[in-house]
Structure formats: C-alpha cells, structure tokens
Design a protein around this nucleic acid. Structure first.
Lengths: 201, 201
DNA sequence: GTCTATAGACGGATAGAC
DNA sequence: GTCTATCCGTCTATAGAC
C-alpha cells in the first residue's frame, strides 16, 4: 500500500500482461497452423520461452486459452469491419457490402492469426468452448445481416439474407485454404466476388 | 488350392472386405464429427465392435486409414458430378455449372461422410496424408476448371477461373458448418447461389 | 480375423520450491 | 511469475495367443 510499492507492482502487472499477450499470439498461430487438438501446451510454452506449468499462472486451462484466442478473433474482424463502415455512411448499400468484404478478407489474410484460428478450429473445439463463443458469433452475424439486408432491400426475406450471408462468408473464409499472398491479391479477389453482386433496384 | 478350400477362403475375404468397409464408414463419420486428431482408434474400434489392435489387420496405420477415407471422399463427389454431367450434354454451360453445384452439395450434405470428412479434416491432417491426396484433389479441381471455363467462355483467364472455382466451392463446402436438413433445402440454396451467376454472352 | 496385454511416448493439469 | 517434478490418463502401435 506504500507509494514505493506501486512501481514494482505495476511492473509485475505489465510483465504479466505482456507474457499473457505473447501466449495468446503464439497460441493463435499454432491453432491456425496445426489445430486445437495438436497444439500441446509443452510446445506452446517452449515457443513463448517458458515451461508448460507456467501457462497456468495466466490461464486456468487449455480450453480457456483457446476460447479467448477465438473470441479475440471474432472481435478483431468485427471491430475492423464496423470501424470502416462507420466512416463510410455516404456509400451505397452495395458499396458498403463490398467494402465490408474487403475488410473481412484483409483482416483474415494479412493480419489476424486469431480470426483464422477461430474459423479453422471452431468445428473441432470442445463443446464448452463453442458455447462460450455463441454470443460473439451471433453479434458478428448480425452485423452482416444488417449489411446484406440493406443491400437486398426491404423486400428481402430472412432466409434470403441468411443464404447470401453464408455464401459470402463461406467463400471468404475458404480463402484461408488457398490464398497465397505471393500469388494472390485481396483487391483482385474482392473485385471478382463483387462482380457476382448485381446492383439492386 | 483344392476346390473345397475356395468357399471358406471366399467367405473370409468377404468378411474381411465387409469389416474393412464398416471401419471406413465409421471412421468417416468420426472424422467429420470430431476430427482426425480426436478420433481414437479405441473408440473407432468399439463402434465397429472390435478392439483397437484388430484394426491393424485391415490398415497399417491411422494415417493410412484416414488417407483412404479422404480419398474416397473426393472420388465420391467426383463420380457423382461427372456421372450427372455426362447425361446432360444438352444443357447450356451455365445450366451444367448449376447442375454440378447441386450434385456436389447433395453428395456433401445428405450422402457422404467421406466427402465432409475430407473437407473438414484436410487442413489438420499429417503432411504425408495431404501429400497422398494431391493427385485426387487436382483431378477434381480440373473437373471444375472445365465446367467453369465453359461457363465463362473462351475469353476467361486462368485466374478468373480459379477465383470463381474457389468462390463457388468455398461457399458450397462452407454449408457443412450451417446446413440443417430440418430447416434448409438444397435446391433452394442452389437457386440462391445460381442467382449470382449471370448469363454469359 | 480378432483377442489380450503391453510397450513407449505424450497429453493436460497440479503442488510446492524459489 | 516461472521452474521442477510428477500424477494419471490416453494415445498409436506391436507381439503373440487363439
């Protein structure tokens, strides 16, 4: 409680926070590359420069760690997409949809191991983890429902919106399986998808 | 070598072939549901009604078993798509593309655990398995290159074909993550994708 | 063909020293 | 905060009986 004690306590906190971030980052990369089941905490710890047991100071379990990685993965794309859309209220609904696709893809392909870890690992992660992710996933889906609903217009049915959302997100998320930044270009690919989206009346 | 020995030898062969098929079928379902890494040979054997060690009479390793499941998965969709297309040479290139999508989706969603196991497990399966699958995957890709090339016309560039292939296959394969046969209908969904594909000049 | 039994490696998680 | 040491479970794969 003394004034002198504060700095060292803050340093500890800062160090802990940094280690925590590094663990999350390495875990995200490993989950994307080899999957949840094959990511051993021994290997993860080794890449961070610690021993497996030490991870439990920062996270209560492997599941909790994976859950946080995947939650951050959704929040990162969601923040990027929403942030860009807020600055683009002057665009048409179709242009906003295409813009959202560009941001989703850019985040996925060039910035965030977290987002790609989420997409790739979600089907095989323990039920408890999937349960914890329900809320954030629903929130991000609703962002796309709004964008696509605006594009399709007032006459669009919920099932039309849902189907187009699955089609576009499916096509984009699939890029994890083939996109090679040496050969492919995000803007070129976005343009090719955009060519499939007619102007609405 | 005697005439009398043949029947029992044939029965043995038939029994072995049946057990082998059952193992493959259960493995395909498990791989689709829980993934390659989480599929234990003990559980697999139990569902087939044998013990883990007995599986090694039929397959030399878990990798070899998974490799065969995934190879069959490609061949099943490929056979289904090619078979249908051969009977439909009178259709336009666009109609043939839409037909191919319907067959790919139907096979994936209502018939073949093998195909969905392939799609879901491919990213995380051992390198050796992915290596073995290169040839069949390339062959199926080339089927789609032909279909899409015909649809886009002679002026289409290889990259346009490739991008449209990734977009359509990505959208379709993603249906594994959301399609619910109680709620969704393949033909309705195919129609909604087809609506994105304009008539070519 | 399938069994039992087990080798040998590796997994997540915990306790307590420092 | 991180380490060492370890518990205990599970995994693939093999050997040999039947």
């Amino acid at each position: 409680m003394s004034e002198e004690a504060k700095p060292s306590r803050q340093r500890s906190k800062a160090k802990a926070a940094e280690a925590r971030r590094e663990i999350l980052g390495v875990a995200a990369r490993m989950m994307r590359e080899i999957g949840y089941a094959d990511m051993s905490l021994r290997d993860l710890a080794a890449e961070v420069g610690m021993k497996a047991g030490s991870l439990y100071y920062h996270f209560p379990s492997k599941e909790a760690l994976a859950s946080e990685v995947m939650r951050l993965g959704v929040e990162m794309v969601e923040d990027a997409v929403k942030g860009e859309l807020e600055q683009s209220s002057h665009l048409s609904a179709r242009e906003r949809l295409i813009l959202a696709m560009r941001i989703h893809l850019k985040t996925l392909l060039s910035e965030s191991d977290f987002s790609s870890a989420h997409i790739r690992c979600y089907p095989f992660v323990p039920d408890t983890v999937r349960e914890e992710l329900k809320a954030v996933r629903r929130a991000y889906n609703s962002v796309w429902n709004d964008i696509i609903g605006a594009y399709l217009g007032a006459a669009a049915t919920p099932v039309q919106i849902r189907h187009l959302r699955y089609t576009l997100l499916g096509a984009m998320n699939w890029s994890l399986e083939w996109f090679n930044s040496d050969r492919d270009d995000v803007d070129t690919y976005v343009a090719s998808i955009a060519g499939l989206l007619p102007e609405q009346e």
